[in-house]
């Protein structure tokens, strides 16, 4: 028997995969270039969501304006994070770098609680539902999927076609030689941090259309983002992109057969199992 609901959750999984891919891409870019994992990446997304909510609901800034400002705010936060927190520990053991951003995670989460309270906030938008052959999809999800793909494509074009993008890729391949070729790694790191932060801002604008904002929201999709990056091979952008869709299917279809938590449990268990079969990532050569 053909199961329409199963097909619906598979397609919803693909739509979710687009947003996860965008999230993973920002994190992968940072890791690939600066060699640091931002454990607080999802918290930057949370700040972006709050910024949009605050500008739109409190100050009545039209949504597109609020989104553009939020992307810039989060990009700036990425730069600040790099300057104030990452730069002092760049030469230190990698685990210190991981943990220092974990401290930022605590800080941002608590600061958001302090500023906005623990209530769930939403934009109060009513997004239309798209019907397609007995299946229903939320318009917000379709929009998010489209924007995420466009974002991924733009980043790819930037990295492969522009001079600056080429410099960024070169630094990620050889940190020692590139400075000799006249590339200033410090400047590249700052630009990368800004782009990574900006991608978190774009992800925030897509998520805020579908979900309520609360200070702990980062914890609900942060871990999944790290898993995707590791499974795709940390720093491997194409791998991360594909892994996002694999993961999204586990969550969506697993959630269809069981409960949503079990979808996540299966996804994480799959991740742990995959680490043993392909420790360097699903798509490593």
């Amino acid at each position: 028997m053909f199961d329409t609901f199963l097909l619906e959750s598979v397609i919803n999984g693909i739509l979710l995969g687009g947003v996860l891919a965008l999230l993973a891409l920002g994190l992968n870019l940072i890791f690939g270039v600066i060699d640091v994992v931002w454990i607080c990446y999802a918290e930057l997304v949370m700040i972006g969501m709050y910024a949009i909510w605050w500008l739109h609901v409190y100050y009545g800034v039209p949504l597109p304006g609020a989104i553009v400002s939020a992307v810039m705010v989060v990009a700036l936060m990425g730069v600040l994070l790099h300057r104030l927190v990452i730069e002092p520990v760049l030469g230190k053991p990698p685990i210190n770098q991981l943990l220092v951003t974990g401290g930022v995670l605590f800080f941002l989460q608590a600061a958001a609680t302090l500023a906005f309270g623990i209530e769930f906030r939403n934009l109060g938008l009513r997004m239309p539902v798209v019907e397609f052959g007995d299946m229903f999809f939320s318009f917000a999800r379709l929009l998010a999927f489209g924007t995420a793909l466009a974002g991924v494509l733009l980043l790819w074009l930037f990295l492969t076609r522009s001079y600056l993008g080429t410099a960024i890729r070169a630094i990620s391949q050889d940190r020692e030689i590139m400075p000799l070729m006249g590339v200033d790694p410090r400047r590249i790191y700052l630009i990368t941090s800004a782009i990574g932060g900006g991608m978190a801002g774009v992800a925030a604008s897509l998520l805020v259309l579908q979900y309520d904002v609360h200070p702990a929201i980062g914890l609900s999709f942060g871990p999944i983002t790290f898993m995707i990056c590791v499974m795709g091979g940390l720093g491997n952008m194409l791998g991360g992109f594909l892994a996002a869709f694999v993961f999204a299917q586990f969550i969506s279809v697993g959630g269809y057969f069981f409960q949503i938590e079990w979808g996540y449990v299966i996804a994480f268990a799959f991740f742990i199992a995959m680490m043993f079969i392909r420790p360097k990532g699903l798509f490593s050569r």
Binding site: V100, A111, I118, P215
Partner: peptide, 13 residues
């Protein structure tokens, strides 16, 4: 809410 966490996070960094 969150004041202790804010100070805590800052101190950890």
């Amino acid at each position: 809410h969150g004041l202790d966490g804010t100070v805590y996070g800052l101190l950890l960094v």
